[in-house]
């Protein structure tokens, strides 16, 4: 039985889910919930109210759930830094879980979950205290993430990278010149670029290669601008995901597009790329010369890949080499 009253802040951008959490908490003896539908409201509540526990979704309007957690743990808010924190999210990606662990989140719950089960978790965590490091520990971690090289803010390319996909045509046979898709990014992202009016002959593969070029260009930009380590880390993740997607797409496309000779050559390139991806994944991002070397190799890989016979001009029937 809980001995005093607890105020629990629940945060979720879906009203129904937020109300669900709110209802779950208010059912518990000696607990009262306050709710927020976005990070900004949650932050205001954390600054003005006495909060004993935070239950938050991760994907909410800025600041997102992880950012809220980091600010609490780092002691940047009036709320005690060691309150129990529960992540309540629809997906549990490894990186998010890892971040949760770094900031000593008490639990990571995956939706959907019953009110009863949630209530039991909350009651348990209010009674059983977990050791939380001093705020300075998390502040240093947070500071480290914030202060590492450069300004690559969340806005520096992420949303742009998404918008590229939005502009794509729906049908495979409606070819859209590559420059239309990368125009938005060109100002900043020209490390790897897709040659105009070119194709592998497979629309989906073109699309994925363009995305790969864009993601690596973002990574390159963040690197050369000495951006913050967390930004570089984010771009590295995005670039590696792009390679994963490429592998996945190739696997599927091979079944649909019977071009053995083409796939044999493409697979050779893909194998080289996967090796580079492994190096990139494990590279120390503070090791500039290592990253630079990797980028050079990637650039070389790209120039080999977007050449004939894999990629050809549309308008000249494959008569020109792109290099």
């Amino acid at each position: 039985m809980l001995q005093r009253r607890f105020t629990i802040l629940v945060v979720d951008d879906v009203v129904l889910m937020c109300d669900f959490l709110y209802g779950a908490v208010n059912r518990l003896a000696n607990c009262s919930a306050i709710k927020a539908l976005d990070g900004k409201t949650a932050l205001e509540l954390l600054e003005t109210e006495t909060i004993d526990m935070l239950i938050t979704d991760l994907e909410i309007k800025a600041p997102d759930g992880l950012e809220l957690i980091k600010r609490v743990r780092a002691g940047l808010l009036p709320t005690p830094h060691d309150i129990p924190i529960i992540i309540f999210s629809g997906n549990a990606y490894l990186e998010q879980v890892q971040q949760g662990i770094n900031y000593d989140v008490h639990d990571f719950l995956v939706k959907p979950m019953s009110i009863d089960a949630l209530g039991k978790k909350v009651s348990h965590l209010l009674i059983h205290h977990k050791f939380i490091q001093p705020a300075e520990h998390y502040a240093a971690l947070y500071q480290q993430e914030q202060n590492q090289p450069g300004p690559a803010t969340k806005n520096s390319g992420h949303k742009v990278s998404a918008s590229i996909v939005l502009k794509e045509p729906q049908k495979k046979d409606e070819y859209k010149p590559a420059h239309e898709e990368v125009d938005v990014a060109k100002k900043e992202a020209d490390f790897l670029s897709w040659p105009d009016n070119s194709t592998t002959g497979i629309y989906q593969l073109d699309r994925r290669l363009k995305k790969l070029a864009f993601d690596f260009s973002c990574f390159h930009n963040v690197f050369v601008k000495n951006c913050k380590l967390i930004a570089l880390e984010t771009e590295r993740k995005r670039a590696c995901e792009s390679i994963d997607y490429l592998n996945y797409i190739v696997k599927n496309l091979q079944k649909r597009e019977p071009r053995p000779e083409f796939w044999h050559k493409f697979q050779l390139q893909l194998t080289k790329l996967n090796k580079l991806a492994l190096q990139l994944q494990s590279a120390n991002l503070r090791h500039n010369s290592l990253i630079l070397d990797l980028l050079k190799k990637l650039s070389y890989w790209w120039s080999q890949t977007i050449s004939r016979p894999l990629v050809q001009r549309i308008d000249d029937g494959g008569g020109k080499n792109h290099e």
Binding site: M17, P112, A162, E168
Partner: peptide, 19 residues
């Protein structure tokens, strides 16, 4: 074919429909 929007909205719908 708004990739991020499809992911975000289907993600939210998935949970609210489930409960």
């Amino acid at each position: 074919q708004n990739v991020l929007e499809v992911i975000q909205v289907s993600h939210s719908l998935k949970s609210m429909a489930a409960i």
